[in-house]
Design a protein around this nucleic acid. Structure first.
Lengths: 217, 217
DNA sequence: TAGATTGTTAATCGATTAACAATC
DNA sequence: TAGATTGTTAATCGATTAACAATC
């Protein structure tokens, strides 16, 4: 079975491969992809095995075909629809960041409890009053959500989203969201990351902490 | 030795404990802290053992004392000084987010290559031209950095920061930063997190993925 | 063929979990 | 004392790494 972390790495490989494709490379070896991604060659080979794509010992992996295989593996054919709750600074930054970045991942609506932040279109996404969360999320068929509300509203927001049919959540509020096992939650805790970096940064060099930890596992 | 992930959890416990302190609770049991943090009671006990604080079988852990122990363990006595490079939407959001949030973690300067984003004070932090990165970072004694520049500038930015004395980096650009082992790098990849959530969200319920993965490990 | 790379299995490593004596 | 919790060791689990035959 494919490892949990493999999924994250595949997302990374795909991005690197797309850049390679643009630069005209037809084939890559696992050790090349490893160097560019910061993973090991063995990880790369095992991950690619997981998506069912085979390389050639002579030429490595065909870039274009491999991208297609990863697409088929990672993406839902009809694409995934996401909503974002909390149109503060961070929420707006994420809306703008995702604008047209991944065609299979669309943010289809945003919500905020502050009337001054609703009724507008932000980076191509309409912002609604949070009261309409359930009706709009269900109407749009959203299965994903991004939570950028304050900490004390995050859990309640998650529960409403799950009730409305959301199955995957990326949470930026500085609390761990509690959810049933069938719901996938990625907690991205920026303060924690900075505190971890601060801790390890001041450890003596002896720390063999190569440990590149990527976000949300 | 204390586990890498323990550091992140300690940061989380501290935040929860601070809220408890405000609500007047004098003592907590490991299972209470576990429930509030989404960790297991065994993890909590082992993590707290790691900071050298002992609880009592009768009353559990003394909240105020425990916070102090975690502070002593995690924080540098003189505090850590961070700079932020890339004052776009995300960079500004992070600047405002951290404003006065953690007294031992100060963002002391920001940088951008765009003159329209420099020479200003954003959420209490002065934004400088990126040409001044080395001089300002060294003068301020920065040991931490937050990178919010576009992907193609991230690696070069990291190298300049390391050269200027930075030992810990939190990177939001969608590339993995390559750095010497003694530098601690936390890569927070928002796109990857959303793609992972999308993948697991559409797996059949059988997936026992409780897996709450927090960002940047 | 010779050499490098791929696919796959076995060994290692690290963190989590389970178990349990010690403590209040 | 009885009961629940803590501190600590042993067992489990999962992912990574190492090893190597198969392939081009």
């Amino acid at each position: 079975m494919i490892s949990t972390r493999s999924i994250g790495r595949l997302s990374l490989y795909r991005r690197i491969l797309s850049a390679l494709l643009g630069s005209g490379s037809g084939y890559v070896y696992s050790h090349q992809l490893a160097e560019m991604s910061g993973c090991t060659a063995a990880q790369v080979r095992r991950d690619l095995m997981g998506v069912g794509y085979s390389g050639s010992p002579a030429r490595g992996y065909a870039v274009a075909d491999l991208i297609e295989s990863i697409d088929n593996f990672l993406d839902s054919p009809e694409g995934s629809r996401a909503v974002l709750v909390g149109v503060g600074n961070l929420g707006r930054a994420i809306l703008c960041y995702f604008q047209g970045r991944r065609p299979k991942l669309n943010i289809v609506a945003a919500f905020d409890k502050n009337p001054q932040r609703t009724g507008r279109v932000i980076c191509g996404v309409r912002s609604h009053p949070v009261e309409e969360l359930e009706t709009v999320a269900e109407k749009e068929g959203a299965t994903l959500a991004i939570i950028t509300v304050p900490a004390d509203e995050a859990q309640r927001t998650a529960e409403r989203l799950i009730e409305a049919g959301v199955r995957g959540i990326v949470n930026f509020a500085p609390v761990r969201i509690q959810a049933p096992p069938r719901i996938h939650v990625e907690d991205i805790d920026i303060t924690m990351s900075l505190e971890k970096a601060a801790f390890f940064a001041r450890q003596p060099d002896a720390e063999t902490e190569t440990a590149q930890k990527e976000s949300a596992t």
